[in-house]
Structure formats: structure tokens, C-alpha cells
């Protein structure tokens, strides 16, 4: 057990009775009070009984149209996506987002369909035209894996830059801005097929934590926050894990 794990266990054990109610929970008295308040706020017999229901009815009508709109949008999106997959070539690596640097904003993750439309057809290397479910799923998985690899390379660049920087440079707001871009892409990947791989899912989850720490740093607590980031890096071993997860081709941008 590491020192951190022993401290966490100590916290759980020692704080178990922190502000624990000393006496039995007063369930019935509280329920009586709740009922009394509800009765006091219920409309009397003299008031129009339907008035309290009208807002609910209006609310229900509004919600119904909202659901219809959302369902129509979803169906349209599925139809467009399926049309695009059937009629476009499979994605090639050349269409994937480029590596980000602190000087350039990290590109937003795009869906495979939009990257596919911009990608050139490479007959020797392209996947077979998706004409069945398994080939389609395989192509999408490959695309997400490639995008994830590029993203992890970007995060590795950030964390390595942070780790090798001097104390003064670590306080630079540049790291927060860089981390903010990477954080939104990390969260997108966590919700994508790229996170089906359990090892990558754990890595993305740990990356999210440290990126949040970098984004949330405030000017007045730099030493404490630097220390928290460094402890996270040490505890999670993120840099070595990133190095083993990112293929060399993703780092250099070549394939």
C-alpha cells in the first residue's frame, strides 16, 4: 500500500463518525412536519381546483413538442450519418486532426463522417467500402483509436512540458488554457467508442482529473495547487502510461 492509499484509508476509518447523528433519526416527527407544510400550501376548496393543474398541462404540452423536435433531429442525424457512410470512402489517416501546441488551439474532435468527407481516397490503404455492419464498425473503431492516439500524444506533450518546466513556468496561465482545450476533447473521447477499451478508459479518466486540476488553478494558491498536480502525476504515473499508450507515429504525425 502506498502512503497515499494508507492516508486515504486512515481518512475513511477516522472520519467514519464525523458529525454522525448522536440520536436516532427523527423520522416520524420530520414526516409530520413535511405533511403539515404540504397541507398548508395545498389550495383550499374555494379556489379553482383546475388552476393548479393548468401549469402542469401547459408544461406537458410544451414538453411533448420538445420531445417531438428532439426525436426529429435525432432521426435526421442518423439518416445523414448512414447516407454518408454508405456513399463516402472509408477514412484515411490523412484526414485526422493535427497535433496541437500551446500556440495553436487544440482542434475540436470531429465525427468520423465529417473527416471522411474531407479525406482523399487511397486505394492501396483504404478499408473496403463499408457494405456490412462489421466492416463499418471496424472502420469506426479504427478511426476513434487513431483520434484517441493523437489526443493522448497532445496530452503527453502538455504534461511533459509541465513536468520539465521550472517552478515559475509551471504557474504560467498557458498551461491552464492548453489543459482546457484538451479537457473538452478528453471528455468527448470518454463518451465515444474509444473508451470501450478498459485500459484507455482508465487512462482518460485519470487524465480528466489532472486536466481539471490544471484548469482550476487560481492565482492565489499556486504552491498548493502545484503540489496537488505533482502528487496526481506521481500517484497515477500518467506520463509513463501515456508514453506506452501512444504509438510513435501519433507523436510525429507520420504514418
Amino acid at each position: 500500500m502506498t502512503d497515499d492509499e494508507r492516508f486515504e484509508q486512515f481518512l475513511r476509518d477516522t472520519a467514519a463518525d464525523y458529525e454522525l447523528p448522536a440520536s436516532e433519526i427523527p423520522r416520524d416527527p420530520m414526516w409530520d412536519a413535511i405533511r403539515a407544510r404540504r397541507a398548508a400550501s395545498t389550495p383550499t376548496l374555494g379556489a379553482p381546483a383546475f388552476a393548479s393543474q393548468v401549469p402542469h398541462l401547459a408544461h406537458r404540452r410544451t414538453m411533448r413538442w420538445a420531445w417531438i423536435g428532439m426525436a426529429a433531429t435525432l432521426l435526421l442525424g442518423v439518416a445523414v450519418g448512414r447516407y454518408a457512410w454508405r456513399h463516402e470512402a472509408a477514412p484515411s489517416v490523412a484526414g485526422l486532426p493535427q497535433l496541437a501546441t500551446p500556440q495553436t488551439p487544440a482542434p475540436q474532435l470531429v465525427s468520423p463522417t465529417s473527416s471522411v468527407s474531407a479525406a482523399p481516397v487511397a486505394p492501396a490503404t483504404s478499408l473496403a467500402r463499408p457494405d456490412n455492419g462489421s466492416t463499418l464498425a471496424s472502420a469506426r473503431t479504427t478511426t476513434y483509436s487513431l483520434v484517441a492516439a493523437r489526443h493522448l500524444a497532445n496530452v503527453e506533450a502538455l504534461l511533459t512540458s509541465y513536468a520539465v518546466s521550472g517552478v515559475e513556468t509551471r504557474s504560467d496561465s498557458m498551461f491552464g488554457a492548453w489543459a482546457k482545450d484538451l479537457l473538452s476533447n478528453t471528455r468527448l473521447l470518454m463518451d465515444s467508442p474509444a473508451a470501450r477499451d478498459p485500459v484507455r478508459a482508465r487512462l482518460l479518466s485519470d487524465l480528466e482529473v489532472i486536466l481539471v486540476q490544471l484548469v482550476q488553478r487560481s492565482p492565489g494558491h499556486d504552491a498548493e495547487e502545484r503540489s496537488a498536480v505533482e502528487r496526481t502525476l506521481q500517484k497515477t504515473q500518467l506520463i509513463p502510461r501515456l508514453r506506452s499508450a501512444v504509438p510513435a507515429s501519433a507523436r510525429t504525425g507520420t504514418d
Binding site: 492516508f7 486515504e8 481518512l11 471528455r187 479518466s205 480528466e208 482529473v209 489532472i210 486536466l211 481539471v212 486540476q213 482550476q216 498548493e224 503540489s227 496537488a228 502528487r231 496526481t232
Partner: peptide, 15 residues
Amino acid sequence: QPGTSKAQLFRARGK
């Protein structure tokens, strides 16, 4: 987000 919860817990434990 759950990640933010983890980060806040980490800071709480640090304090």
C-alpha cells in the same frame, strides 16, 4: 462531471 468530483476530492484530501 465525475472527473471534477475526483479532482475536488483530491484537493480536499490534500488540504
